[in-house]
């Protein structure tokens, strides 16, 4: 599904290499986790895949179902089925959450040549999804993420994911800033979306999120590369011993 091959990325503004040859394949139905110390390039990887500006790909490729992602605009990648749950969801004053969701859903449908959802169809769907994430009607009416608590912002990300039904979901530190209950709620939302056709890439610092979203594969990223890959037990090892041992072993 998602194929990343020897991906090298540097910042556009300065001559600083961030990703130094990332190789990664996520199969449909699987949950891959990426862990790694601060500054290892995890968030950069998520931004580059989703099409944020400011980065230059100097080598390598990334494809989703065989389509070259790196050639596409951010909105084309989204319509092709890629979704990034932001570490810091952006506040957009003046744009209602509902308007935003409906515009996004229908823009993607249009890009794929599908009929747009009617207001009634959309409303029915969004209410059902919101209810399972404990998002109340008031939150749907408010401007996107404005005045939302940390937990509300992350639940709103999952709501968008649920509404957009992407093929490939990247979760960038979705656990940051969440208390235990909020994390459970978010994890339940993610687990409800797990299916054999959908891939997940879960970026996190901590094992605790992976207690709730069970990964199939765990990667350790350091210094712009994936340095070790294993099963769920690798995350436990990090939790118990930190990254030092693993990094020393790889060096």
């Amino acid at each position: 599904m998602l194929n990343i091959n020897n991906l090298h990325v540097q910042l556009e503004e300065e001559d600083k290499q961030i990703l130094k040859g990332v190789n990664l394949t996520v199969e449909p139905g699987k949950v891959h986790a990426i862990m790694g110390p601060n500054g290892s390039g995890k968030s950069t990887l998520s931004y580059v895949l989703s099409g944020k500006g400011g980065y230059e790909v100097t080598e390598g490729s990334a494809t989703l179902d065989g389509q070259d992602l790196l050639e596409q605009e951010a909105e084309e990648r989204a319509a092709a089925g890629l979704f990034l749950a932001f570490q810091y969801p952006v506040e957009i004053p003046g744009v209602g959450n509902m308007t935003f969701l409906r515009t996004a859903v229908n823009a993607q449908r249009k890009a794929r040549g599908e009929d747009e959802l009617s207001a009634a169809e959309f409303l029915k769907e969004v209410r059902a999804q919101a209810k399972s994430l404990k998002i109340d009607a008031e939150m749907l009416k408010r401007p996107v993420n404005v005045g939302f608590s940390g937990g509300e912002k992350k639940r709103n990300e999952i709501l968008q994911m649920a509404m957009l039904q992407p093929k490939m979901c990247i979760l960038d530190e979705t656990d940051s800033g969440l208390d235990v209950d909020a994390m459970k709620l978010v994890a339940e939302g993610v687990n409800a979306l797990r299916s054999e056709n959908r891939g997940f890439l879960v970026i996190t610092h901590y094992q605790r999120l992976l207690d709730h979203i069970k990964p199939d594969v765990v990667h350790i990223m350091a210094n712009g590369r994936i340095v070790k890959t294993g099963g769920p037990e690798l995350a436990l090892e990090v939790e118990n011993n930190g990254y030092a041992d693993i990094l020393a072993e790889v060096e």
């Binding site: 944020k52 951010a74 952006v90 515009t103 957009l164």
Partner: peptide, 11 residues
Amino acid sequence: ALFYLRSRGIP
């Protein structure tokens, strides 16, 4: 904000 909207598929 622009990237956030575009990342959700809005041209």
